[in-house]
Design a protein around this nucleic acid. Sequence first.
DNA 1: CTCAGTTCGTACCGATCAGTTCGATGATGT
DNA 2: ACATCATCGAACTGATCGGTACGAACTGAG
Lengths: 198, 198
Amino acid sequence: MPVPKGSTIDPERTRAGIIDAAAPLLYERGLDGIGVAELCARVGVSKETVYRYFGTKDGLIQAVLEARSERVTAWIAGAAAAAGDDPREQLAAVFDELQRWYEEPTFRGCAMQNAAAQHQVEAVQAVTARHLDRRLGLLTAIAERAGAADPDALGRQLLLLVEGATLVAAHHDRAGAGHHAKQAALALLPANRPSGRR
Amino acid sequence: MPVPKGSTIDPERTRAGIIDAAAPLLYERGLDGIGVAELCARVGVSKETVYRYFGTKDGLIQAVLEARSERVTAWIAGAAAAAGDDPREQLAAVFDELQRWYEEPTFRGCAMQNAAAQHQVEAVQAVTARHLDRRLGLLTAIAERAGAADPDALGRQLLLLVEGATLVAAHHDRAGAGHHAKQAALALLPANRPSGRR
DNA sequence: CTCAGTTCGTACCGATCAGTTCGATGATGT
DNA sequence: ACATCATCGAACTGATCGGTACGAACTGAG
């Protein structure tokens, strides 16, 4: 009774395993590009199990996106933290890390961006909106530490660069998007010094 | 013989009419969100006609996207041209026009961005890539007229802001994305003066 | 061992989809 | 008036989809 040690076969583990295995498939094939049947086969689980855990395909998609959002956010935050205390260095590290991502052969754009463009479903849009919220918070925090006159405005400008770079990398300039975004971000930093305006 | 004056019922006109009528439906419902049957019914044309003109649903989609790309490019170029000769004013006018677009109730993101995220089909990706090419050319031209030290680099930075703003407007901050992008763009302009670097 | 709950595999359901076919209809050019 | 061709409308095909149902196999606890 102190701890039932999970029930039979650890539902928590099963659920997480399904999410982890389904995520890359949904990412590379698109949300509508793979059916539930093939998805289950590749994950190594029966349809009944999937439907009991997630209720519906959209439920699975939502869970996958939420997990991915948290993973990606932690990854970006980690890259910034590993760059030290200088906000300028942190920003540079974030865009360098993004560029490294763009050049991975499996890169197919941001999963949240793609999902929101594919599924007009309310729940999916909400996950993407929350994801952008988290990312904005992260960038605004850097803007604050950089001593920006208007950290909120600078944070939102940086968000445009990050999302724009990811989109352009996916569809137009995989090799240079992160680099140009980094240059722009670093140029915006001094432009937002307190003495700069008014 | 001097000019056959078109054949019977003007195939050119019919084709253009199908494209014009199908475009908003594909835009608001998504490429996979509406079937060929309903599409034809709403357009007011039979499936046979559509398939004779475009061969396949993807063919129709490609034609719709190409038409839209040209229309949008001309629209943006017109907004810049109408703002006079000052590159700074042109840039401001472009982002103001974008912000006006974001606030239209029918705004659902950039059709090319959405299409590329939905259809991994080669032809669709190519249309989106060409679209971004045109847009980059337009922005680079403004950067050149602004006397940027590296017009290509500045053009690509501006492209990130335009695409980022459109994406963020669609999924996160419809009211402010264009405004923040404009501020960032105007801040990047002086930062790219020839005296600024090296 | 026994019982209960989980999972699997497979078959099935109703709906929808892209694309084809075909006879009826209408307009065009001669 | 006649022949031609685009178009329509509607039926049809074969495939795929999300979701459900069910018996068999497996797992764990008492």
